[in-house]
Write a protein that binds this DNA or RNA. Structure first.
Lengths: 225, 225
DNA sequence: TGTAATGTTTACCAATCGGTCAAATATCCG
DNA sequence: CGGATATTTGACCGATTGGTAAACATTACA
């Protein structure tokens, strides 16, 4: 909390007035966040050090701190950036579409994210797992609102008999958990599958299984009491 | 790697010869592991400090280190102790039983563990999430062997038409992920459900949903190509 | 081209990290 | 009781932590 005359660094002049960000700023901040994603996603916030990030980013620690004044600021910037894309698949969930096809493509999209952006998934997993000390507001705010909205869609589907009657929240949880499992618990998945089946094909296998499970499990055949 | 004449502390004389462990040793080691579980499960290995554990355990840091010579030793002892009970539900999986009932009760047991032993679940989640640097051998050894064995059982069920044809490994993964989600991502679950539905009843709701999903999804009705 | 603003680095700081040591204290047992 | 053993503690260590100060280098731009 001191700003004793030090030249104010430009760190994240988010929506600042006329302050343009230079080319170097864009590049370096990108470079830093890329490295920070590597480190934070692998060790969590407390377990990561600025030195590690600096080394991965290929720059000196004070140079890092010129762009992001604290470790927290780096983490915060990363979370903010990642949260939006992380929620995209759920946002694409369409009330007008065919339920079976919507769920199928939601699963597929989430699985593709687990395959293509595992670090982003692990970043959140680490954060939530450790009590979400930095993103509690995001969870109770934007996330909850979006889920509430989509849950209402699912509830409507169930009510009109398009899918089996079920708790929409736990349905969403189960899709999250099953798909993200392949990013977050990757080493365990690989270890259990063994070398033979741990190739990239595991995502195909997972997709096949999960679609079968969810489509079969939600089909409004003979609904339970 | 120094043992310059220091009186060897008794730390974990696992299966040591005639060396009885005193009452105090039992108590203190228990007390330490309890505190270590608290801290490690909340912050991961790298993010936890011996001082934190000492404070939670209500003893001085050197006293802690009298019973466990290093932070790693503490973590290792904790992992070893927890791994066994963590695998119990899967071990109970019975090849002779009724498939539907076996899967149902496996889900229920795993869900009970998520409810009653969330710290144990998070300890593993943290470890695996961060690349399982301390338990790789356990994953590729005992864990894989047990899963291989149970996967064969499931495969047999599928072959004989008792359940739908599906990949047994991904079935097991999906049960792990959906159930452990309620321990590992507890804060997120609570945040999304909101105060109204985040009570203990959420485990009942989850059990209902998951049983419906898995039983429905695996029922050998009209199997896919 | 000059100069003001921006970017980078070296040297450093106090706090905390995992862990050690010797001395002090508590417990056990004959 | 008394001595041997087991337990506990405060003081301390070098390494690492997040972060700073200020000198130095580069860039953008008039």
């Amino acid at each position: 909390m001191n700003f004793k005359g030090k030249r104010q660094p430009v760190t994240i002049p988010r929506a600042a007035k006329t302050l343009r960000r230079t080319r170097i700023q864009e590049e370096k901040e990108e470079q830093i966040l890329e490295a920070a994603l590597d480190v934070f996603s692998a060790s969590g916030f407390r377990g990561s050090t600025i030195d590690q990030i600096a080394e991965v980013a290929g720059m000196s620690k004070p140079n890092l701190l010129y762009y992001f004044r604290t470790k927290e600021a780096m983490h915060r910037a990363l979370i903010d950036r990642v949260l939006y894309t992380w929620l995209e698949p759920l946002r694409a969930f369409d009330a007008e579409g065919n339920p079976e096809e919507e769920i199928r493509s939601y699963i597929r999209r989430k699985l593709e994210m687990a395959r293509d952006f595992p670090r982003e998934s692990r970043l959140f997993a680490n954060e939530v797992l450790q009590g979400a000390p930095h993103i509690e507001d995001e969870l109770k705010g934007p996330l909850k609102e979006l889920v509430d909205e989509k849950a209402e869609v699912i509830r409507a589907w169930a009510k009109s008999g398009k899918i089996v009657k079920c708790d929409p929240y736990h349905l969403i949880f189960s899709i999250w958990s099953t798909t993200q499992h392949y990013a977050d618990f990757d080493v365990q998945v690989r270890a259990v599958l063994g070398q033979e089946h741990a190739g990239e094909g595991r995502f195909e296998d997972a997709a096949r299984f999960l679609e079968q499970l969810f489509i079969g499990g939600l089909r409004p055949d003979r609904s339970e009491t």
